[in-house]
């Protein structure tokens, strides 16, 4: 069944799935934290954090990629330090693609979660407190179940966005087949060579299918969770 895609195409698809999966998983805790901070907490720098989170949405992706390279590249001030002390390298590795995809998808995730956090009635959390639940328990037993639809929607949206990320990824980690060549990078490469239209078309179809499935799945999961939350 595997022969309708060439090994190179398979590599690109597998890598994209892996990158998107990890990008979503790793950014989820941060997404929850930032969404709560923006929705609930008042602190100096609230507006700055909000702007920072949304920056990748409005910056040219190539700029985001370049800034990542400056920061997390081998000579970047964070990258150098991470390499030296932990042996973690982002530049030109698949992990770098994860970082780029996570940052580009972050605003979408935060927006979805933030909306659901704002919709939670704080008086329910107060009631849970009077029944003996401490802060973390209130969050785990009341807040989290109530925001779950938003969290699922945000995560699936982030996954779909990560699957399609191109500009920041190619700038930050280049386009190395088998290592950093994700689906969009592979499509780009195929379109640069004569006779590449057929493989490119196959990957385009896959991209469309993956993106559509993600959207449909996110809608379905969110609606199911919403029904559960509203108790119907």
């Amino acid at each position: 069944m595997a022969d309708w895609l060439s090994p190179a195409e398979w590599d690109a698809l597998r890598l994209s799935l892996r990158v998107s999966f990890w990008a979503t998983l790793v950014s989820l805790p941060f997404g929850l934290l930032v969404a709560h901070a923006l929705a609930r907490w008042r602190f100096p720098g609230h507006g700055l954090l909000n702007g920072l989170v949304h920056l990748p949405l409005v910056l040219p992706p190539v700029v985001t990629g370049y800034l990542l390279l400056l920061t997390f590249g081998r000579r970047g001030w964070v990258g150098q330090w991470l390499d030296q002390w932990f042996g973690i390298v982002f530049a030109f590795r698949w992990t770098g693609a994860v970082l780029a995809a996570a940052i580009m998808a972050f605003p979408l995730m935060v927006r979805a979660i933030r909306l659901s956090v704002e919709a939670v009635d704080p008086r329910l959390e107060q009631a849970a407190g009077t029944l003996g639940a401490s802060g973390p328990w209130v969050w785990a037993t009341v807040t989290l179940p109530l925001i779950l639809p938003g969290v699922i929607a945000g995560a699936v949206l982030a996954f779909a966005k990560a699957m399609g990320e191109f500009g920041a990824t190619i700038t930050f980690v280049s386009n190395i087949p088998g290592q950093t060549q994700t689906l969009p990078s592979a499509i780009y490469s195929f379109l640069q060579v004569p006779g590449g239209e057929a493989p490119a078309a196959r990957l385009v179809v896959i991209s469309v299918v993956v993106a559509m499935s993600a959207l449909v799945a996110s809608e379905w999961l969110a609606r199911r969770a919403m029904r559960r939350v509203q108790g119907r």
Partner: peptide, 22 residues
Amino acid sequence: LPPHRRRLGVIFQDGRLFPHLT
């Protein structure tokens, strides 16, 4: 003491049942 350490049962005006639980 925070509310959760007081062991007082509050009946609120609006019930405040948890909508996601039976």
